[in-house]
């Protein structure tokens, strides 16, 4: 193998390591503490190629209102699904859509887009 081949091999390996580090290990989603309101905890989740914040902390037994602010019209994010709560809601583009859940048990509840590609989770403690 010539030098250029060694170089390409090294760059390629580095790229693969970086890809896996960036998408799997470097995921440090800012866990957003929820703000309070009279009847339920609330948090605005921006929907644009993903959910920001992607991890939301909530308290057991307190209703949680996630306000999805869909800032795009790409069809990928048009639905949000909370499988544990049997919720599938259409999110109109460029609008805020509230989804209310009532986590009665501690645990991690995932929410995804209609095709399970975009992911977020609610950590209930």
């Amino acid at each position: 193998m010539g030098l250029d081949q060694w170089i390409v091999l090294a760059i390629g390996l580095a790229a693969i390591v970086w890809i896996n580090w960036y998408f799997f290990l470097a995921r440090t989603p800012a866990a957003a503490a929820t703000e309070g309101s009279a009847d339920a905890a609330e948090v605005v989740v921006a929907v644009r190629g993903g959910y920001a914040p992607a991890t939301i902390q909530a308290r057991v037994g307190r209703p949680l209102r996630l306000i999805f602010d869909r800032q795009e019209d790409a069809s990928c994010s048009e639905e949000v699904v909370f499988p544990d709560f049997g919720i599938r809601t259409f999110l109109p583009a460029f609008q805020r859509t509230p989804v209310e859940i009532r986590p009665d048990r501690p645990g991690t509840y995932e929410f995804t887009c209609g095709m399970s590609m975009l992911r977020g989770r609610v950590v209930v403690a």
Binding site: Y22, F23, A26, P29, G49, G50, L118
Partner: peptide
């Protein structure tokens, strides 16, 4: 947008 959230999709 997905990349910024450390996400990747289609």
């Amino acid at each position: 947008a997905a990349f910024r959230h450390h996400n990747a999709n289609m």
